[in-house]
Protein backbone atom coordinates (compact mmCIF):
# COMPACT_ATOMS: atom_id res chain seq x y z
CA UNK A 1 0.00 0.00 0.00
CA UNK A 2 1.11 3.57 -0.68
CA UNK A 3 2.22 5.01 2.59
CA UNK A 4 1.25 8.60 3.29
CA UNK A 5 4.46 9.55 5.05
CA UNK A 6 3.17 13.10 5.68
CA UNK A 7 2.27 11.76 9.09
CA UNK A 8 5.97 11.44 9.89
CA UNK A 9 6.43 15.21 9.61
CA UNK A 10 4.84 15.51 13.01
CA UNK A 11 7.86 13.89 14.65
CA UNK A 12 10.07 16.78 13.58
CA UNK A 13 10.01 20.13 15.25
CA UNK A 14 8.99 22.67 12.54
CA UNK A 15 12.55 24.04 12.70
CA UNK A 16 13.87 20.68 11.66
CA UNK A 17 11.68 20.19 8.63
CA UNK A 18 14.05 21.52 6.02
CA UNK A 19 16.94 19.71 4.46
CA UNK A 20 16.91 16.56 6.48
CA UNK A 21 18.11 14.59 3.48
CA UNK A 22 20.96 16.97 2.87
CA UNK A 23 21.70 16.89 6.56
CA UNK A 24 21.89 13.11 6.52
CA UNK A 25 24.22 13.01 3.59
CA UNK A 26 26.55 15.45 5.26
CA UNK A 27 26.47 13.50 8.48
CA UNK A 28 27.38 10.32 6.73
CA UNK A 29 30.16 11.90 4.72
CA UNK A 30 31.83 14.17 7.19
CA UNK A 31 31.02 13.14 10.74
CA UNK A 32 34.30 11.89 12.04
CA UNK A 33 34.25 13.74 15.32
CA UNK A 34 31.44 12.71 17.55
CA UNK A 35 31.89 15.13 20.37
CA UNK A 36 33.15 18.64 21.00
CA UNK A 37 34.75 19.49 24.34
CA UNK A 38 35.11 23.13 25.35
CA UNK A 39 36.87 24.17 28.56
CA UNK A 40 36.91 27.60 30.14
CA UNK A 41 38.66 29.00 33.16
CA UNK A 42 36.33 31.48 34.79
CA UNK A 43 37.29 34.33 36.96
CA UNK A 44 34.73 34.40 39.73
CA UNK A 45 36.52 37.29 41.39
CA UNK A 46 35.75 37.69 45.07
CA UNK A 47 33.20 34.87 44.90
CA UNK A 48 35.85 32.28 44.36
CA UNK A 49 37.15 32.71 47.85
CA UNK A 50 33.80 32.59 49.54
CA UNK A 51 33.84 29.53 51.80
CA UNK A 52 31.10 26.94 51.99
CA UNK A 53 29.31 26.85 55.35
CA UNK A 54 31.47 24.99 57.85
CA UNK A 55 30.55 21.99 59.99
CA UNK A 56 30.44 23.94 63.27
CA UNK A 57 27.95 26.35 61.81
CA UNK A 58 25.84 23.45 60.62
CA UNK A 59 25.95 21.79 64.05
CA UNK A 60 24.98 24.98 65.83
CA UNK A 61 22.02 25.48 63.45
CA UNK A 62 21.03 21.80 63.83
CA UNK A 63 21.01 22.11 67.60
CA UNK A 64 18.80 25.19 67.40
CA UNK A 65 16.40 23.56 64.99
CA UNK A 66 13.38 22.48 67.08
CA UNK A 67 11.44 21.59 63.94
CA UNK A 68 13.48 18.39 63.77
CA UNK A 69 11.34 17.11 66.64
CA UNK A 70 8.20 15.31 65.54
CA UNK A 71 5.14 17.41 66.18
CA UNK A 72 7.07 20.68 66.38
CA UNK A 73 6.48 23.21 63.63
CA UNK A 74 7.42 26.87 63.23
CA UNK A 75 4.84 28.15 65.76
CA UNK A 76 5.89 25.75 68.49
CA UNK A 77 9.58 26.44 67.81
CA UNK A 78 8.92 30.15 68.34
CA UNK A 79 7.26 29.36 71.65
CA UNK A 80 10.39 27.50 72.80
CA UNK A 81 12.45 30.58 72.02
CA UNK A 82 10.02 32.76 73.96
CA UNK A 83 10.40 30.37 76.90
CA UNK A 84 14.16 30.88 76.68
CA UNK A 85 14.71 27.37 75.40
CA UNK A 86 17.47 28.03 72.92
CA UNK A 87 18.71 24.64 71.83
CA UNK A 88 17.82 20.95 71.67
CA UNK A 89 20.13 20.42 74.63
CA UNK A 90 17.77 22.55 76.75
CA UNK A 91 15.08 19.92 76.14
CA UNK A 92 17.23 16.91 77.01
CA UNK A 93 15.65 16.63 80.45
CA UNK A 94 12.12 17.37 79.31
CA UNK A 95 9.96 14.25 79.80
CA UNK A 96 8.05 14.81 76.58
CA UNK A 97 11.02 15.63 74.34
CA UNK A 98 14.09 13.96 75.84
CA UNK A 99 13.70 10.79 73.78
CA UNK A 100 13.45 12.75 70.54
CA UNK A 101 16.41 14.90 71.46
CA UNK A 102 18.56 11.89 72.28
CA UNK A 103 17.71 10.38 68.91
CA UNK A 104 18.49 13.64 67.11
CA UNK A 105 21.95 13.75 68.64
CA UNK A 106 22.50 10.17 67.62
CA UNK A 107 21.53 11.06 64.06
CA UNK A 108 24.00 13.93 64.16
CA UNK A 109 26.73 11.52 65.22
CA UNK A 110 25.73 9.02 62.54
CA UNK A 111 26.56 11.56 59.88
CA UNK A 112 25.41 12.82 56.50
CA UNK A 113 23.16 10.01 55.28
CA UNK A 114 21.11 9.73 58.47
CA UNK A 115 20.83 13.52 58.67
CA UNK A 116 19.70 13.63 55.06
CA UNK A 117 17.04 11.03 55.80
CA UNK A 118 15.54 12.93 58.71
CA UNK A 119 15.68 16.20 56.75
CA UNK A 120 13.80 14.46 53.96
CA UNK A 121 11.09 13.48 56.44
CA UNK A 122 10.92 16.76 58.36
CA UNK A 123 11.69 19.52 55.86
CA UNK A 124 10.70 20.67 52.43
CA UNK A 125 13.41 20.78 49.75
CA UNK A 126 13.71 24.55 50.24
CA UNK A 127 14.52 24.49 53.96
CA UNK A 128 17.64 26.33 55.03
CA UNK A 129 18.93 23.25 56.90
CA UNK A 130 18.84 21.27 53.64
CA UNK A 131 21.00 23.97 52.12
CA UNK A 132 23.42 23.82 55.03
CA UNK A 133 24.20 20.20 54.18
CA UNK A 134 26.80 21.91 51.98
CA UNK A 135 28.97 21.94 55.09
CA UNK A 136 29.60 18.23 54.55
CA UNK A 137 31.35 18.97 51.27
CA UNK A 138 34.43 20.69 50.05
CA UNK A 139 34.23 23.04 47.11
CA UNK A 140 36.14 20.51 45.03
CA UNK A 141 33.41 17.91 45.67
CA UNK A 142 30.76 19.93 43.87
CA UNK A 143 29.78 19.60 40.25
CA UNK A 144 27.73 22.49 38.87
CA UNK A 145 25.52 20.98 36.21
CA UNK A 146 23.31 22.26 33.42
CA UNK A 147 22.26 20.59 30.16
CA UNK A 148 20.94 21.77 26.81
CA UNK A 149 18.48 19.44 25.11
CA UNK A 150 16.42 19.06 21.95
CA UNK A 151 13.13 19.14 23.86
CA UNK A 152 11.97 18.95 27.44
CA UNK A 153 11.38 15.22 27.01
CA UNK A 154 14.08 12.60 27.61
CA UNK A 155 12.90 10.53 24.66
CA UNK A 156 14.89 13.07 22.62
CA UNK A 157 18.59 13.82 22.79
CA UNK A 158 20.94 15.88 24.90
CA UNK A 159 22.89 18.45 22.93
CA UNK A 160 25.34 19.75 25.56
CA UNK A 161 26.23 18.73 29.09
CA UNK A 162 27.80 21.63 30.92
CA UNK A 163 29.81 21.07 34.12
CA UNK A 164 31.49 23.57 36.42
CA UNK A 165 33.88 22.77 39.26
CA UNK A 166 36.58 24.18 41.45
CA UNK A 167 40.10 23.07 40.66
CA UNK A 168 43.16 24.41 42.39
CA UNK A 169 41.16 27.38 43.56
CA UNK A 170 40.03 28.18 40.05
CA UNK A 171 36.54 27.77 38.66
CA UNK A 172 36.50 25.83 35.46
CA UNK A 173 33.70 24.83 33.10
CA UNK A 174 33.62 21.95 30.64
CA UNK A 175 30.97 21.68 27.92
CA UNK A 176 30.45 18.37 26.21
CA UNK A 177 28.54 18.76 22.95
CA UNK A 178 27.28 15.93 20.76
CA UNK A 179 28.28 16.68 17.18
CA UNK A 180 26.05 14.00 15.72
CA UNK A 181 23.78 11.16 16.75
CA UNK A 182 26.76 9.04 17.79
CA UNK A 183 27.96 11.89 19.96
CA UNK A 184 25.34 11.70 22.69
CA UNK A 185 26.66 8.33 23.81
CA UNK A 186 30.16 9.77 23.90
CA UNK A 187 29.27 12.85 25.94
CA UNK A 188 27.38 10.72 28.46
CA UNK A 189 30.43 8.53 28.96
CA UNK A 190 32.70 11.55 29.22
CA UNK A 191 30.34 13.02 31.79
CA UNK A 192 30.50 9.78 33.74
CA UNK A 193 34.28 10.13 33.94
CA UNK A 194 33.97 13.72 35.16
CA UNK A 195 31.67 12.54 37.91
CA UNK A 196 34.22 10.16 39.37
CA UNK A 197 35.93 12.74 41.54
CA UNK A 198 32.75 14.57 42.56
CA UNK A 199 30.31 13.98 45.38
CA UNK A 200 27.35 16.33 44.85
CA UNK A 201 25.54 18.26 42.15
CA UNK A 202 24.67 21.89 42.29
CA UNK A 203 21.87 22.56 39.82
CA UNK A 204 18.98 24.83 39.09
CA UNK A 205 15.84 22.69 38.69
CA UNK A 206 18.20 19.74 38.28
CA UNK A 207 16.16 17.45 40.52
CA UNK A 208 13.26 17.55 38.12
CA UNK A 209 15.07 18.08 34.85
CA UNK A 210 18.84 17.78 34.33
CA UNK A 211 19.69 14.75 36.47
CA UNK A 212 16.64 12.57 35.58
CA UNK A 213 17.15 13.53 31.93
CA UNK A 214 20.78 12.33 31.99
CA UNK A 215 19.69 9.24 33.93
CA UNK A 216 17.11 8.38 31.27
CA UNK A 217 19.52 8.94 28.41
CA UNK A 218 22.17 6.77 30.11
CA UNK A 219 19.58 4.04 30.65
CA UNK A 220 18.61 4.36 26.99
CA UNK A 221 22.15 3.47 25.97
CA UNK A 222 22.52 0.94 28.77
CA UNK A 223 25.28 3.01 30.40
CA UNK A 224 25.50 2.00 34.04
CA UNK A 225 25.22 4.96 36.34
CA UNK A 226 24.87 5.77 39.99
CA UNK A 227 23.52 9.29 39.69
CA UNK A 228 21.15 8.63 42.57
CA UNK A 229 23.99 8.49 45.09
CA UNK A 230 24.97 12.10 44.39
CA UNK A 231 23.37 14.66 46.61
CA UNK A 232 21.71 17.35 44.53
CA UNK A 233 21.66 20.92 45.83
CA UNK A 234 18.84 22.16 43.63
CA UNK A 235 19.09 25.92 44.04
CA UNK A 236 15.65 26.55 42.53
CA UNK A 237 13.95 25.56 45.80
CA UNK A 238 16.34 27.52 48.03
CA UNK A 239 16.13 30.61 45.81
CA UNK A 240 12.34 30.58 45.90
CA UNK A 241 12.48 30.49 49.68
CA UNK A 242 15.35 32.93 50.22
CA UNK A 243 14.05 35.52 47.77
CA UNK A 244 10.36 34.93 48.26
CA UNK A 245 8.32 37.84 46.96
CA UNK A 246 11.27 39.40 45.20
CA UNK A 247 10.24 38.22 41.80
CA UNK A 248 7.49 36.31 40.10
CA UNK A 249 9.49 34.23 37.71
CA UNK A 250 12.37 32.11 38.93
CA UNK A 251 14.29 31.58 35.71
CA UNK A 252 18.05 31.85 35.72
CA UNK A 253 17.88 34.83 33.39
CA UNK A 254 15.52 36.71 35.71
CA UNK A 255 17.64 35.78 38.72
CA UNK A 256 20.72 37.11 36.92
CA UNK A 257 19.01 40.43 36.37
CA UNK A 258 17.25 40.91 39.69
CA UNK A 259 19.31 39.05 42.26
CA UNK A 260 22.80 38.56 40.93
CA UNK A 261 22.91 41.83 38.97
CA UNK A 262 24.74 39.89 36.31
CA UNK A 263 24.21 40.87 32.70
CA UNK A 264 24.60 38.31 29.98
CA UNK A 265 26.30 39.46 26.81
CA UNK A 266 25.05 38.13 23.46
CA UNK A 267 23.26 35.29 25.15
CA UNK A 268 20.54 33.36 23.35
CA UNK A 269 17.31 32.17 24.92
CA UNK A 270 17.12 28.53 25.98
CA UNK A 271 14.34 28.12 23.44
CA UNK A 272 16.77 29.00 20.63
CA UNK A 273 19.21 26.22 21.45
CA UNK A 274 17.46 23.77 19.17
CA UNK A 275 17.40 26.32 16.33
CA UNK A 276 21.18 26.84 16.46
CA UNK A 277 21.88 23.16 16.86
CA UNK A 278 19.79 22.39 13.84
CA UNK A 279 21.61 25.08 11.87
CA UNK A 280 24.87 23.42 12.86
CA UNK A 281 23.58 20.00 11.81
CA UNK A 282 22.59 21.28 8.41
CA UNK A 283 25.71 23.35 7.71
CA UNK A 284 28.32 21.67 9.93
CA UNK A 285 29.49 25.19 10.70
CA UNK A 286 30.86 25.12 14.25
CA UNK A 287 30.02 28.79 14.67
CA UNK A 288 26.41 27.76 15.21
CA UNK A 289 27.45 25.82 18.30
CA UNK A 290 29.12 28.81 19.93
CA UNK A 291 25.88 30.50 21.08
CA UNK A 292 24.75 27.20 22.64
CA UNK A 293 28.00 26.67 24.52
CA UNK A 294 28.07 30.30 25.59
CA UNK A 295 24.49 30.02 26.87
CA UNK A 296 25.38 26.86 28.76
CA UNK A 297 28.45 28.53 30.24
CA UNK A 298 26.37 31.52 31.36
CA UNK A 299 23.91 29.18 33.07
CA UNK A 300 26.67 27.32 34.92
CA UNK A 301 28.19 30.59 35.97
CA UNK A 302 24.84 31.85 37.24
CA UNK A 303 24.38 28.67 39.28
CA UNK A 304 27.81 29.14 40.86
CA UNK A 305 27.12 32.80 41.65
CA UNK A 306 23.68 31.97 42.97
CA UNK A 307 25.20 29.45 45.36
CA UNK A 308 27.53 32.15 46.59
CA UNK A 309 24.61 34.53 46.99
CA UNK A 310 22.62 32.01 48.99
CA UNK A 311 25.62 31.34 51.23
CA UNK A 312 25.95 35.04 51.88
CA UNK A 313 22.23 35.32 52.74
CA UNK A 314 21.83 32.14 54.78
CA UNK A 315 25.19 31.59 56.41
CA UNK A 316 25.72 34.79 58.35
CA UNK A 317 27.13 33.71 61.67
Amino acid sequence: MDFDSDFLKKFHNPENKKNHTEQNKKNIDTDKNKMLINEFNIDLGEHLLHPLPDKDYFISCYKKCFELIYGVREKKAKKFNEQNIKSLEDLSNDIKYSGFVKNLFKILDDGFHEIKKIFGRRFSSSHKMAFLLLSFFKKEDLLFLDIETMTLFPETQIITIGCGFFQNNNFKTIHLTALNEEGEYEILNEFKKLLETKKAFVTFNGKSFDVPFIDMRMSYYNIENNLNIYHNFDLLFFTKKAFKGLQKSFTLKEIDKNILKKYRKNDISGDDVFYYYNKYKITKNMNFLKPIINHNKEDILSIALLLHKLISVWCKN
Binding site: L8, T151, E181, Y221
Partner: peptide, 19 residues
Protein backbone atom coordinates in the same frame (compact mmCIF):
# COMPACT_ATOMS: atom_id res chain seq x y z
CA UNK B 1 15.22 8.33 5.18
CA UNK B 2 13.08 10.96 6.90
CA UNK B 3 15.82 11.64 9.45
CA UNK B 4 13.80 10.26 12.36
CA UNK B 5 16.01 7.29 13.09
CA UNK B 6 19.75 6.97 12.64
CA UNK B 7 21.91 3.89 12.54
CA UNK B 8 24.72 4.29 15.08
CA UNK B 9 27.23 1.97 16.65
CA UNK B 10 24.76 1.60 19.55
CA UNK B 11 21.92 0.47 17.28
CA UNK B 12 19.17 2.40 15.55
CA UNK B 13 18.33 5.42 17.70
CA UNK B 14 15.49 7.91 17.60
CA UNK B 15 16.57 11.29 16.25
CA UNK B 16 13.23 13.07 15.86
CA UNK B 17 12.79 16.34 17.64
CA UNK B 18 9.41 15.69 19.20
CA UNK B 19 8.46 13.17 21.87
Amino acid sequence: DKGLVKKTSHGFIYTGSER
